[in-house]
Amino acid sequence: MRAAPLTGSGIRGPALAAGDPVVLVAHGSRDPRAAEATRALARAVAAARPGVAVSASWLDHTDPGPTEALRSLAAAGHPRAVLVPLLLTAAYHRRVDVPAAVAAARESGPPIDVRVSDVLGPADGVVDGALLAGLRRRLAEADPGRFDALVLAAAGTRDPRARGS
């Protein structure tokens, strides 16, 4: 997650209050370990932000989806929330699925204003230093000196803007 506070320039949408709940939204996987990793991340974010409700949601394979998570917050009386896409590129899921989930949450149930942060990966062509630091830590754990080459792999996209980041 970006090192900047949630009220920083990486958040788009209505004004955000200090205690507004945070909804993390991951891609989702058939592998249950992926959902547990997202839940663990939500617990870590909540521990780092005492007094802020932090929940996890998924675009596919695991419930709740972001629409349901936002509707639950609205039903509990929260007028605002911030949604953080746990995605590495601003491709289809960030440009289409995330805005559709927010729109669906706004169209039914109690009203809720939602701010959506940038993705974790490059935003406007700039890779966040915290993401690079995390990658460096993981590479050090893998002991890359023992290998002839290193492959950094990610799921692809047809979106040329995301491929260019």
Rank of each mutant, 00 (worst) to 15 (best):
L24N: 05
L73Y: 08
G164W: 01
A155V: 12
A37P: 00
A149W: 13
D118T: 07
G109L: 13
P50G: 08
S57L: 09
V22P: 04
A90Y: 00
T157C: 01
S9H: 07
A4L: 12
G8S: 15
T67P: 02
R115C: 15
T67W: 09
A40S: 12
L16H: 09
A153L: 05
F147W: 13
L150K: 07
I11E: 02
A3I: 15
R94Q: 12
A47G: 09
V116Y: 08
P21C: 09
S165M: 11
L150C: 09
A104N: 13
G13K: 01
R49M: 03
P85T: 08
V126K: 11
L87D: 04
R137N: 02
G19R: 15
S9M: 08
G109Y: 10
A69F: 14
M1H: 10
A123M: 12
A37F: 02
A44P: 05
S29N: 02
A18Q: 11
R80E: 11
A74S: 13
R43A: 14
R33G: 14
L6G: 05
P99Y: 04
P5K: 11
A35G: 13
E68Q: 15
V96K: 09
S29K: 10
P5T: 15
A104F: 00
A133R: 07
A155C: 10
A81D: 02
L83P: 01
G13R: 13
V116N: 01
V151M: 09
I112P: 12
L135D: 03
V82K: 00
A101L: 15
D113I: 00
A44F: 08
G125T: 07
A26M: 10
G129V: 12
A53T: 11
A81E: 04
A74F: 11
P21F: 00
E141T: 01
L83Y: 02
A4T: 15
L24F: 09
V119M: 05
R163L: 15
H78N: 14
R49C: 06
V102D: 04
V25D: 01
L152T: 15
A42M: 06
L41W: 04
